[in-house]
Design a protein around this nucleic acid. Structure first.
Length: 290
DNA sequence: GGACAGGGTACAT
DNA sequence: ATGTACCCTGTC
């Protein structure tokens, strides 16, 4: 085990960041969070708001993965001034950051996420890892497996993926894995494209539509200007910004609104709004588990 | 128990 | 542009 690194942090909330639906494979034991970043074990805790302890994995890995270099002060200054709902969401979890995840595992996880609850996405993700990934470490009694490579999922076959509870998503994940494994689609090419072109490119993959493409771009390609719209955000936007409208805006109108209203770091705005909507219970009709 | 909905996408009008 | 099927699981 490495010596513990202690970092001074500002505007950072480890628990909120790892529990904001960006990522699905972290484990928690009391105040300690642990998992893999790619195939690197990372163990972290935040005993005080301004202190991040990196128990294993090293400061550099933690800094990069947890995006501690994102300048949240600067980002906040670009947000719309008189936006009360956003202000409230920000106050709820000001230290929620957008991670820099490994690309394939982020994309693949979101392919398995359609019409699923977060708990189930997690279950699927962990099943895929333990069946088709590589065992890297055991931490606090939990075996940690890397996310299976495209090649491993391609070789596993659709029915084996189905057995992990993927349902109709098994075909999508398998087909996408095959395309990448045989070199017919290069995830690295996406890096060279602008946001709109990158999204179109990702949408060529089976099981990848606008929402999943944008989540991947936001959480793994560091495209902080994309604004994924899912059922939660759509509901939140309608209730928070258009409740008094005589006629509800179309989905396209909502997209245009988000694009113009939230500015260049709209991805951060989206994540704060999403986290608040999902965890605070502000929408009464969304029953929250007790 | 059966209905229902859950971080959508693909495919057909 | 809008409607519908898709697989599976937890919940009421």
């Amino acid at each position: 085990m490495d010596a513990t690194d202690t970092l001074v942090v500002e505007d950072f909330n480890l628990a909120a960041t790892l529990d904001s639906g960006q990522v699905f494979h972290w484990h928690r034991e009391d105040e300690i969070f642990f998992s893999l970043v790619g195939d690197q074990p990372l163990i972290v805790s935040q005993p005080k708001p301004d202190t991040l302890c990196v128990h294993e994995g090293g400061a550099e890995l933690a800094r990069r993965y947890l995006a501690l270099d994102h300048d949240l002060k600067k980002i906040r200054r670009t947000l719309p001034k008189g936006d009360k709902p956003l202000r409230r969401a920000l106050k709820f979890a000001p230290g929620l950051r957008i991670l820099r995840q490994p690309r394939w595992e982020c994309l693949a996880s979101f392919i398995t996420s359609s019409l699923k609850q977060v708990a189930h996405i997690r279950q699927i993700s962990l099943a895929l890892r333990s069946r088709f990934g590589t065992k890297i470490a055991t931490i606090h009694g939990v075996e940690l497996f890397s996310y299976p490579t495209p090649d491993a999922l391609a070789r596993a076959g659709e029915s084996a993926l189905r057995a992990c509870g993927l349902g109709y998503r098994a075909k999508f994940l398998h087909q996408t894995a095959v395309l990448i494994a045989k070199g017919a689609f290069d995830l690295d090419e996406v890096e060279k494209l602008n946001d709109a072109a990158a999204m179109e490119k990702l949408c060529e993959l089976p099981g990848v539509g606008p929402k999943i493409a944008q989540c991947s771009l936001l959480f793994a390609w560091e495209r902080l200007g994309v604004f994924p719209i899912d059922v939660w955000i759509e509901r939140a936007l309608r209730e928070l910004y258009f409740a008094k409208s005589r006629r509800q805006p179309s989905s396209k109108a909502l997209r245009d609104f988000a694009w113009k209203h939230f500015g260049p770091y709209r991805g951060y705005a989206q994540q704060w709004l999403f986290h608040h909507a999902r965890t605070s219970g502000i929408f009464s009709r969304n029953r929250k588990e007790s």
